[in-house]
Every structure is written in structure tokens, then in C-alpha cells.
């Protein structure tokens, strides 16, 4: 096995171009499991952890440009105000040890339907910035996932950053896992309310071949939320919204849970998330 540890992105892109089958590693929290368990034996490992720009974030005015390697710990410590949904999701990832190393780039690269970052990125309408020697492109998060552990990236591309709009309203993330810590999502849900554009974004995790949006639920919420007066979300709205989210999911039975349970619990947590996110939208307004 070859091992490269470029210090700059340019070097990394050159290497990825000449070694398109190279497996990128940064935090290592996914890749090393594959290696330790003999599930993958890549000929080349391309270590991105020495490239400092990948582990930085910057304020772009309306958005945050989040380096692919910024660890989850820093996301919830430093960006809880700008990206509350992603911050909440980051707090639920694995353990502190994992959160200290893992970042959004790895989550996207692995493209597991259960990745905790995906629902908030979908809900916020993020764009994934990828680069190769041929240049860079921004991939709409809605176009990014193709199937279980499959994304739209070309073999010579590297995820460099994610451009995430700052919260323009309440955001929430909720995850079902049978343990009170350190669980892979049985299912999860992210919501981002955009009070400025009077719209609602959603993301469903671990209940389909890819992370999913719940478009009908979004439209329902956008038309039923009381944008003018901010009156509370009613139990009926929670129920209807939850039912639409569940309907948008495409879960299966597996060792972590039944499809029926996934649908059921998604309906519950998404309804709750709508209520909570709307409450915090009003709180933000009143401040």
C-alpha cells in the first residue's frame, strides 16, 4: 500500500489525478474501520489531514464555508449559532473521540444513508465543493447522493468544503438510536426553517437508500406555518407534517430497526422538530 500525505490541496489534487483509485482519509473514523476490518484494501491511501485549509471554516456573509475536515467538535463549539441544525447533528456523532476527528467531508465521501451531517445539509440547501486538477465545482446537496455509499463524485475529485447557508430561522436535528449515546441512526431528521423566504427545508437520514428530502412535508409546513403572527404549531400540524415525512421515507428492515418503526418514529420526531424549530424561529424574531 502506498501512502501519500500532501501538505497542500494542489499536491493532493495532482496525486488524486494520477491515483484515481486512492482512498482519501482525513479523520479516519470511517476509513480506518474499513481497513481494520479488512473490508477495504486500497492500493493507495491519500491522507488529507495535513492540508490546513481543509480544517478551517470562514464566514461568507450569508453562508459558512466549512472545510471538509473541520471536526464535529469544532462545528458544535464554534458554529452553533450560524448552523444550529448541523451543530446539533454534530453533537450526536459517535463519541467525543470520533467527533474530535471526523468531519463533514468524510461523511459525504462515505455517503452512508445514516450519516448524521446529511439531513441538516439537505435541510439547509448546502452545496458540496469538490475539486480536481481540472478545476472545482459545487454540487447541490440534492444531487450529491446516488445510492447507499454512492455519490456523484468523479474518481479524481476531492471534497474540499461545504457551503452552508446560515440559519434564517429555527433548525433542529433529531436522531433515533436505541442507546442514549454512541449510536448509528436508526433514522434521523433535520429541519431548517427559513423565515426570510417563508420556506422549510428537511432531511431524512437512515430511512432510504440515500438521505432524502420530504418535499411534500416542506410545502405543507410552508403553507401552514403562521408566518404572520407566529402562532404555535398545533398537534394536528405536527401529525400531518410527520405523516408526510414518513411517507417520503423509504426504509427497510435491518438489524437496527424495522421499516415500520422507522416510519413511525420519523413521523414523531419530525413533528416535534417542526414544533421546536418554529418556537426557536419565534425566539429569534423576538430578539
Amino acid at each position: 500500500m502506498e501512502f501519500f500525505r500532501p501538505a497542500t490541496l494542489i499536491d493532493a489534487l495532482a496525486l488524486k489525478s494520477t491515483h484515481p483509485t486512492a482512498l482519501c482519509i482525513n479523520g479516519g473514523t470511517d476509513v480506518m474501520v474499513e481497513l481494520n476490518f479488512d473490508r477495504k484494501r486500497p492500493e493507495t491511501l491519500l491522507d488529507l489531514s495535513a492540508i490546513s485549509e481543509l480544517s478551517e471554516w470562514s464566514d461568507q456573509g450569508d453562508s459558512i464555508l466549512l472545510g471538509a475536515g473541520v471536526p464535529y467538535t469544532r462545528i458544535y463549539q464554534e458554529l452553533a449559532k450560524e448552523l444550529p441544525g448541523l451543530a446539533m447533528a454534530s453533537r450526536t456523532v459517535g463519541s467525543l473521540q470520533i467527533r474530535n476527528k471526523g468531519g463533514v467531508g468524510g461523511n459525504l465521501g462515505s455517503a452512508s444513508p445514516a450519516g448524521d451531517a446529511h439531513p441538516p445539509l439537505l435541510a439547509s440547501g448546502a452545496a458540496v465543493n469538490v475539486a480536481s486538477v481540472n478545476g472545482t465545482r459545487a454540487i447541490d446537496i440534492n444531487e450529491f447522493f446516488l445510492g447507499p455509499k454512492k455519490n456523484t463524485m468523479n474518481p479524481d475529485e476531492i471534497i474540499t468544503s461545504v457551503l452552508i447557508p446560515k440559519a434564517r430561522g429555527g433548525q433542529q436535528y433529531s436522531k433515533i438510536g436505541t442507546r442514549n449515546a454512541m449510536v448509528i441512526a436508526v433514522c434521523s431528521f433535520g429541519i431548517a426553517i427559513d423565515a426570510k423566504n417563508k420556506s422549510v427545508g428537511t432531511g431524512i437520514g437512515s430511512a432510504g437508500p440515500t438521505p432524502l428530502r420530504a418535499h411534500e412535508a416542506e410545502s405543507y409546513a410552508a403553507t401552514h406555518l403562521d408566518w404572520a403572527n407566529g402562532s404555535a404549531v398545533t398537534p394536528e400540524m405536527m401529525k400531518e407534517f410527520g405523516a408526510l415525512v414518513a411517507a417520503a421515507s423509504r426504509p427497510i428492515d435491518d438489524v437496527r430497526g424495522t421499516a415500520a418503526y422507522r416510519r413511525h418514529s420519523l413521523a414523531v420526531i419530525s413533528g416535534r422538530c417542526l414544533k421546536w424549530a418554529w418556537t426557536s424561529t419565534q425566539d429569534m424574531r423576538s430578539k
Partner: peptide
């Protein structure tokens, strides 16, 4: 466990708490 699920291999790497099983040897140069 060798998959970051148990914390038994916790060490400090450049001051950060990590699972040593999830760090590739080449990354600690």
C-alpha cells in the same frame, strides 16, 4: 473493538483525544 466504539485505545494526538485504532500510522508522522 478496532472501530472506535469502545474508547479503550484513547490517546492524545497533538493534544486531541482520539481513538488510536482510527488513526492510520502514516497520519502521525
Amino acid at each position: 473493538c478496532e472501530q472506535g466504539e469502545c474508547g479503550s485505545c484513547s490517546v492524545h494526538l497533538d493534544g486531541i483525544l482520539v481513538c488510536a485504532c482510527l488513526v492510520a500510522a502514516g497520519q502521525v508522522e
